[in-house]
C-alpha cells in the first residue's frame, strides 16, 4: 500500500532531514530487512549522496533513522515531495526494498 505523506510534515523539514534522530527512537527493529539487498541498492544512492555535507542540497543519508528514511522515500514515491530525481529513484522501489535501504543506511557510515 502506498501512503501519502501527512501534509503537516513539511517538505522543507524532510529535505533538511533534520527529523531523523528523533524519529529514530520510534524505529522498528531492522529484523527481517534484507541487509545484502540494502547494500546493493544503496550503491545507487551513493552516486549522489556519498560526499554530502550538512549544507548540501543533496542531504546526508548515512546514519538516518529508519522510520524517517522510509517516510521520506515513500513521500517521494507518492510524489508528495517535489524533486523529480528522487521521485524517479523512489518510483521503482517496493516496500521491502525501501525497508532494506532504510536498515542499511541507519547504520552505514559515509564513505571517507
Amino acid at each position: 500500500m502506498r501512503r501519502a505523506m501527512p501534509a503537516r510534515i513539511s517538505a522543507a523539514l524532510l529535505l533538511a532531514m533534520g527529523g531523523g534522530a528523533a524519529l529514530c527512537l520510534l524505529a522498528p527493529s531492522a529484523q527481517g530487512a534484507d541487509a545484502e539487498l540494502g547494500r546493493y541498492l544503496s550503491s545507487e544512492c551513493t552516486t549522489c549522496h556519498g560526499a554530502s555535507k550538512s549544507d548540501s542540497t543533496i542531504p546526508i543519508i548515512h546514519g538516518l533513522g529508519e522510520v524517517h528514511f522510509v517516510e521520506v522515500i515513500k513521500a517521494y514515491r507518492d510524489k508528495a515531495l517535489p524533486n523529480p530525481v528522487m521521485q524517479n529513484i523512489a518510483a521503482r522501489l517496493g516496500d521491502e526494498e525501501i525497508a532494506a535501504l532504510a536498515a542499511y543506511f541507519a547504520t552505514a557510515k559515509k564513505p571517507k
Partner: peptide, 19 residues
Amino acid sequence: QNYKESVDWYNGITADIFG
C-alpha cells in the same frame, strides 16, 4: 536549486568513482 544540486552531484559522483 538544480544548479546547487548539480554541484553536489559532481562532488558525490567523483568521490564514488575515485574514492
